[in-house]
Design a protein around this nucleic acid. Structure first.
Lengths: 141, 141
DNA sequence: ATCCTACGATGGACTCAGTCCAAGTCAAGA
DNA sequence: TCTTGACTTGGACTGAGTCCATCGTAGGAT
């Protein structure tokens, strides 16, 4: 994702220090951060960055297709920088941990035309839920 | 769902007028209402019912497995009374309309053991996104 | 190298969805 | 009919996110 900034410049983005810092945070170890977590990490690098800017930047990255928004728990949305590798999510229903997974088959084709009701279906999101190894152990002990 | 009240009584629920009214609202035409919409409809039948009670009752119905919570847009959660018929959702990304659909195949088995990372996977949610017929037409005209 | 200006950043107020809680009410068993 | 603990109430509170008037600055023009 180090060429992310190049792609953005190519799209007419002004490269402000704030945007650079947000990109840098998302470029770190690939976890699924909330907007506030992104803001906290960005603030370590650029203390005056505002929450509004982080929200703006994340929103722009999402609409450019560089980052995917996932809301797995009805609470804060999380931002997944792994947008260029199609994948789905596996979520622990106890601790909320998220892992990227790659199911076999292609879920989009699983929806027969008769079940499309005239919709132009373009994407599908799949969320598997269960207990992660740690929580399974905690609950059974 | 008219026997819902019976099932609830069997589980030790007190049958208050508020709970009866919430059940009645969910029993109506099968749409995916938000908590506030449920409250508005309930208030037509029982004007003094409070928002807190609607939230409580919906939460209880969800944990009893009588109703499913769906959050398709990161905004208000919606409540789907169709809990006893396994299904997935098709959402219009422009107007937010939701339809129940029944894909072929069983998505749970599409996750190979090697992709489960030790999780005990129990459920899967699939959300198809696209444009409904109305919005497709609006956008192309 | 300097200037200009439109795009972007700021932060504080605001909205929206949902939760919490102390006090009052009432369903249903005795 | 009485009693009691489960249920309801409404208002305050929280968390996540948006809005907006004002200020700052990236980067093209000179």
């Amino acid at each position: 994702m180090s060429d992310l900034l190049e792609r953005l410049r190519g799209r007419g983005w002004r490269l402000t220090s704030q945007r650079r810092v947000v990109a840098q945070v998302l470029d770190g170890d690939h976890v699924h951060l909330t907007a506030d977590e992104v803001h906290a990490r960005a603030a370590l690098l650029l203390p005056e960055i505002s929450r509004a800017t982080v929200y703006n930047t994340l929103g722009e990255l999402v609409s450019l297709g560089e980052v995917i928004e996932v809301s797995t728990d009805g609470r804060a949305k999380r931002y997944d920088p792994n947008a260029h590798h199609p994948h789905q999510h596996l979520v622990c229903s106890r601790c909320g941990m998220i892992r990227d997974v790659h199911p076999s088959g292609s879920p989009l084709t699983d929806l027969p035309p008769a079940e499309r009701f005239g919709f132009t279906v373009s994407t599908v999101e799949v969320t598997y839920r269960g207990l992660c190894p740690g929580c399974t152990q905690t609950l059974s002990s």
